[in-house]
Simulated scan of single mutants.
Amino acid sequence: MSPMQGEPTRCSPGCRTTSSPLSATRRRCRRCPRAAPIFWSSNSCPFQMIRHKDNVYATQFHPEADGAVFEQRIRIYKDHGYFDPADAARLIADCHAQSVTMPERILRRFVERYR
């Protein structure tokens, strides 16, 4: 993950900008509206998190997902052309090896703010 651009989001104050979310997005946004601040960006997905106006957020990662959730998705989609089925065990191990905490914190803060 590269550092955040634009202003800090109200839903992610104090979150480390170098945190990496787990992402399984094959199709991604290639252009972002000029008025939408970009909060997270990466080499593989330049618009991980953006905001439109005051309170409409879009993410291209899964703030609710951890290694166990991605393991389930890998097993479900193993034979559907998303990746080489021979890579499934390695992908599962890679997902479990990641320490992913910032997306969960952002999701929690989003719920606290907008409930």
Rank of each mutant, 00 (worst) to 15 (best):
A68T: 12
A58W: 03
P8M: 03
V100L: 06
C15Q: 08
Y114R: 05
I38F: 01
R28G: 02
H80P: 00
S12M: 10
R90Q: 09
Y77W: 12
V56M: 09
K78I: 02
C11M: 15
D94N: 13
R16F: 01
K53C: 11
A36F: 15
V56S: 08
R90G: 02
N55K: 07
G6A: 06
Y114D: 10
F61W: 02
Q48T: 01
E112S: 08
S20Q: 14
R16G: 12
S44M: 03
M102V: 15
T17I: 03
A68V: 12
F70S: 05
F47T: 01
T9N: 04
V100N: 08
D94L: 06
A93E: 15
S42A: 13
S20F: 04
P63M: 12
P33N: 03
H80D: 08
Q60I: 07
H62M: 07
R16I: 02
M1T: 12
A24Q: 00
E112L: 13
T101E: 12
T101N: 12
D79K: 07
Q5I: 04
V69Y: 14
R16K: 11
A88H: 06
Q5S: 10
I74Q: 00
R105H: 10
R27Y: 14
C95A: 15
F110V: 06
P46D: 06
A36H: 11
S23A: 15
Y57F: 13
S42C: 12
M4H: 05
T18A: 04
Q60T: 04
A86I: 02
C95F: 10
S41P: 00
P33F: 08
A86K: 10
E7D: 14
P3S: 09
A97V: 00
W40I: 00
A24I: 12
C15A: 13
I76C: 06
A24W: 14
R51V: 04
T17D: 13
M1Q: 11
Y77L: 14
H52R: 06
R109C: 05
W40E: 10
H62E: 04
Y82N: 09
A36D: 05
E104I: 00
Q98S: 07
R109K: 09
I106D: 01
W40G: 06
I76V: 13
Q72C: 08
L91R: 12
R73I: 03
V56K: 04
R26D: 09
S23K: 03
P46S: 11
Y57C: 01
I76L: 09
A36I: 01
H96G: 03
R27M: 06
S23F: 01
T25G: 05
D94R: 11
P103F: 09
A24V: 08
R28L: 02
C45R: 03
A68L: 10
T101D: 11
C11G: 04
C95G: 01
T9D: 15
Y57Q: 03
E104R: 15
R51G: 00
K53N: 14
A35S: 15
D94P: 02
R34M: 04
Y114I: 07
F39Q: 09
T17L: 05
F70M: 15
T101H: 14
D79Q: 13
S20K: 14
R73P: 00
C11W: 07
K78N: 05
R34L: 11
R105Y: 06
H62V: 05
V111E: 07
I50P: 10
D54N: 13
C45P: 00
C29I: 11
E71R: 15
N55G: 09
F83C: 09
P3C: 01
C45Y: 02
P63H: 09
R75L: 15
